[in-house]
Structures are given as structure tokens and as C-alpha cells.
Design a protein around this nucleic acid. Structure first.
Length: 532
DNA sequence: ATAGGGTTAG
């Protein structure tokens, strides 16, 4: 009773008074601490339990494993896995599912997979956890294959399982697959819970179709703050700031209280649509009316907002005066703005602060800085940066682009020649470029940082994965149908121009999902207003 | 009076 009311101190008092504790009393106490978020007390009680009992039971173990998951304490997780082994409980489906989930959330997919593969009996939850694990660790494609395998083995999914499948589609941005999954959900008459509905909104939005996302939204009887935030975010990253603001007002009118994430979504929406004043107003409203303390993400949105509008000094002083810890994304936003406006000095300052944080994708930031130097014609500095990168063995993350054709996903990666039609595609791309150039396209070799001649630079631009994917898409899909591509990095300026001309010359709608947002290309223009 | 899986940003 006490643990149910989060009165864990009282519960512990009573617990200490019990002379002969059985496994049930231990598990209630451990679970009580776990529910309350007291991970130190939870682990301590668990240790006492192990010491006093002959062996731990399979009720208590999942509880502590879950705490390891929530705190991503892999070390503790592995220790508990050893205990599980020692007592031969690794084939218990409850314990095993908890372990798989813990490994996945700690991003060690190999251990999750080994655990899953060696299990004797897998039930719905175990499969669901593993499907989620693959998505979590960046193999959404694998997740969808697992879902097929699960069905082959006769396991019938429920709505929680479907949330994980829907998430995999969202991560992939695979529209055909999304439609198939949607049909499946409708056909099997799953109860459209708030969570499943919200996940589907997110899926459609991330597959590039806000309209379908909205249809789901409209049909949902019950919506929570997450549902509204997902819809607002969707309009935001599709560059439809006006509608994001409309939905935000509607949300307030229904009496729904926005949270910290809602404000990140709406601020982000403002920045992507260049609605500076609206964004700044919301930033103060958030603090004054809703008592939401701005975190580093909110500040990043505002820096982005100011930076894109060219108000670099305000952005930079906002960063200087803020009282919370600065992170990679924050400085990255400032650096990005410097790139747009060619502000070399501020870029150097941002890059210096950024690199002090020893970021994981240092290579990316160096490249951004090198881009800024290149634009300013400072080739010596470009060379210096490249040398630094070589010395530190920093590599550029290889760019890839995916396109879904006939329910199959084709991936194009720089330097990867595995696509069977690649030679043909290169020929077609050359031919396409000729047409585009006749229409006015001029390749922008400023985006090539290698110190080679103009002709070589043009050659390098040819290999950009989005160009290959689009060329392939043009011939592999019916005339007039939209082309949807997903890529892992941001579109380069030259490819952005290239795609504009494709939409004009081939008369196609091209929808690009990049690392940050969506671009809808139509009749030679892009929805981002060349601002990304 | 005890156990494992789910949604929004970046």
C-alpha cells in the first residue's frame, strides 16, 4: 500500500520490521524503490536480498534490470546478468526480455541479439523488445524483418508490438512500408490507443506525408500532450510554421498544457520558417506563463532562430549570458548560422568552444568551418583544417541516401559500388545534368573541399548519393509520381539546387528528408526557402 | 499481495 502511494520511506520502515522476509516482501521493497526512482536504495536492497536468500527469484530480477535500463547503467546490468546466469534463470522469459531491453537501451545490440538468439522460448513481449532494440540501435530494416519472422512463428502482435513496428517505419522514412503497416493495423482492428495513434502520426510525418499524419490526428478521440507535440513538430520540420502555430493555439484552447518538449517543437517550427518574432514571443511566454525553465535545447532553438535571421550578435550574446551548461548542438547552431552569413571570426570562436567539448562528430564541425573558410576564399585555412583532420584521423561520416522502390529500399553511399545498376545510373546522371544545365543549373563546386581542378570537383559532385538516388528514382518510378528520399546528412548546397531543377525539368514533386528536416521541391522551388 | 514491451525534440 505504501509503495503504491510512493511513500517509500514508510514502506521501508515497515519492511525493516518484518522478521522473516520472504521473496515477496523483498520484491515489493525492491520494486518500491525502483518505482520511486531511488536506484541506489534499490540496488542496496537487492544486494541484501541476494545475500540473505538462497537464490533470487524471477520476480525481483526484472525489476532491478529495468532500473539498469532506465539509468543506462550497463556495468550494473552486466553484473546482474552474471547473477542471472549463476542461478540458471537466463531462460526465464521475463528475465530475458528485461535483459534484452536493457542491452538495447545501452546500445549494445550484439549482447541483446545473443541473448535473444539463445532463448528457448520467445513470447510476444520478447519479440517486441527485440524489434524495438533493432530500431533503437539503428537497424530499423532489421526490425521490420524480425516482425515478419515473428508472424511466421505464429505470434500474434498486439498494439504495443505495433508501436514498435510503426517506429521502425518512422526511423526508415519508408512510405510504402508505412502504408502497408497502416493497412495491417486497420485490417486487424487494433484498438487505436493514444500511444499507437501518436506513433502513427510520427510515422507518416517522418515518411514525408503530413496530410496522412493529420488524418490520423483528426480521427483520434483522445489526445494527450505527446500527440499534440508530435503534430506540432511535424508541421515544424516540414517548414509549415504557420500551421504549427495554429495547432499550438488549438492545443491551448482545448485546455491541454504544453510541456518542455512541446516548446522545443514549436520554437523549432518558428526557426525553420523564419518566424523570428513569433519564436521570441513564445520563448518568453514559455517561461512566464507556463513556468517551463528553458533547457539547452530551447536555447539552441532561439540561437538558430536569431542566427538564421542574421542576428548573429544577439545569438552570440544569448549564449554568453546563459546560465546552463552549453553543449555541442548549441555551438553547432551558431556555427551553422555563421556558415550562412559567412561570419569567419564568430565561426572560429564557435568552432573553438565546440571542439573543446570533444564532440563525437568533430569531423563534421571541422568540415563546416572549412566550408566557411572556402567561401571566404581562405584556402590556406582550408588546407590547415584538412591537415588537422588527417592528423587526428577524423573522417567525414559517409553520406548515404535511401529510396524505396517496389517495396524495396535501395541505398546509395559515397564510394559504394554495390548497386547492380550503378554504371547505368551514372550514365543517366550525366545525361540528366546536361538537361538541367540547359535549363540554367550551374554546378556549385564551392561545396567540394578537395584541392583539385574544376573538372575533378564536378566529378566529385556527381558522386553525391542523393543525386544517384534521384536519378535511379526517375527511371524506376512512374512518370509524374513523387520521389521520396531519405538521407543521413544535411543536403549540400549544390544538391539542393540540382533537385530544384529536377523538380522543374522532370516535373516531379521531390520530397527529401535530411538529418534535420524535410524539403519539398516543386516547380523549381523548395519549401525551406533555401534556408536550412 | 510481487515480474518483462509503447508515443513527442535533439
Amino acid at each position: 500500500m505504501y509503495t503504491a502511494h510512493r511513500a517509500v520511506t514508510e514502506a521501508h520502515g515497515l519492511f525493516c520490521g518484518i522478521k522473516e522476509k520472504n521473496s515477496m516482501s523483498w520484491s515489493v521493497m525492491v520494486g518500491g524503490f525502483a518505482k520511486n526512482g531511488d536506484c541506489v536504495d534499490c540496488f542496496r536492497t537487492f544486494r541484501e536480498y541476494i545475500r540473505s536468500a538462497d537464490h533470487p527469484d524471477n520476480y525481483t530480477l526484472p525489476l532491478v534490470i529495468r532500473v539498469c535500463r532506465d539509468t543506462t547503467d550497463l556495468q550494473m546490468g552486466r553484473l546482474i546478468h552474471q547473477i542471472v546466469h549463476k542461478f540458471g534463470l537466463h531462460s526465464d522469459p521475463f528475465v530475458a526480455a528485461a535483459l534484452v531491453d536493457m542491452y538495447a537501451k545501452c546500445k549494445v545490440i550484439d549482447d541483446a541479439k545473443t541473448m535473444f538468439d539463445t532463448m528457448l522460448e520467445r513470447d510476444l513481449v520478447t519479440w517486441t523488445v527485440m524489434i524495438g532494440a533493432q530500431t533503437e540501435c539503428g537497424s530499423a530494416n532489421e526490425a521490420l524483418l524480425l516482425f515478419d519472422r515473428m508472424q511466421e512463428e505464429g505470434i500474434v502482435p498486439d498494439s504495443v508490438a505495433m508501436v514498435n513496428v510503426v517506429n521502425a517505419c518512422a526511423k526508415l522514412g519508408a512510405m510504402h512500408k508505412a502504408r502497408l503497416v497502416h493497412d495491417y493495423i486497420s485490417g486487424k482492428k487494433f484498438w487505436l490507443t493514444v500511444v499507437l495513434g501518436t506513433a502513427m502520426i510520427d510515422m507518416y510525418a517522418k515518411c514525408g506525408c503530413v496530410e496522412s499524419a493529420r488524418e490520423i490526428f483528426d480521427r483520434m478521440g483522445i489526445k494527450n500532450v505527446v500527440t499534440w507535440s508530435a503534430m506540432i513538430a511535424a508541421y515544424g520540420y516540414h517548414g509549415r510554421g504557420r500551421e504549427a502555430l495554429d495547432y499550438f493555439s488549438m492545443m491551448l484552447m482545448t485546455g491541454m498544457v504544453p510541456n518542455s518538449i512541446t516548446f522545443v517543437s514549436i520554437l523549432y517550427a518558428c526557426s525553420h520558417s523564419g518566424m523570428v518574432e513569433d519564436g521570441l514571443k513564445l520563448f518568453s511566454l514559455m517561461q512566464e506563463e507556463y513556468g517551463v525553465r528553458p533547457n539547452v535545447k530551447h536555447f539552441t532553438c532561439v540561437v538558430d532562430l536569431l542566427g538564421r535571421a542574421g542576428r548573429l550578435d544577439e545569438a552570440s550574446s544569448l549564449i554568453k549570458n546563459m546560465a546552463i551548461e552549453k553543449d555541442e548542438g548549441l555551438w553547432g547552431a551558431l556555427l551553422g548560422a555563421c556558415r550562412i552569413y559567412g561570419h569567419v571570426e564568430l565561426a572560429e570562436e564557435a568552432a573553438r568552444s565546440l571542439l573543446e567539448l570533444q564532440p563525437e562528430n568533430a569531423g563534421h564541425h571541422y568540415i563546416l568551418l572549412a566550408n566557411i573558410y572556402a567561401r571566404a576564399g581562405k584556402w590556406k585555412d582550408v588546407a590547415r583544417i584538412r591537415e588537422l583532420m588527417t592528423r587526428q584521423r577524423l573522417k567525414k561520416v559517409p553520406g548515404w541516401t535511401c529510396i524505396e522502390v517496389d517495396n524495396k529500399i535501395h541505398q546509395f553511399t559515397i564510394g559504394d559500388h554495390s548497386h547492380p545498376q550503378l554504371k547505368e545510373i551514372y550514365e543517366k546522371l550525366k545525361c540528366l545534368c546536361n538537361k538541367l544545365e540547359l535549363a540554367g543549373y550551374v554546378p556549385d563546386t564551392n561545396y567540394v573541399l578537395h584541392d583539385v581542378d574544376e573538372e575533378c570537383k564536378r566529378g566529385i559532385l556527381y558522386t553525391h548519393s542523393e543525386k544517384l538516388a534521384i536519378t535511379f528514382g526517375l527511371s524506376a518510378t512512374p512518370e509524374g509520381s513523387p520521389i521520396r528520399i531519405t538521407k543521413n546528412l544535411r543536403v549540400c548546397g549544390d544538391c539542393h539546387t540540382f533537385i530544384k531543377y529536377v523538380s522543374l525539368v522532370a516535373n516531379r514533386l521531390v520530397i527529401v528528408r535530411d538529418a534535420n528536416r524535410f524539403h519539398h521541391f516543386k516547380d523549381g522551388a523548395c519549401s525551406c526557402g533555401d534556408y536550412w
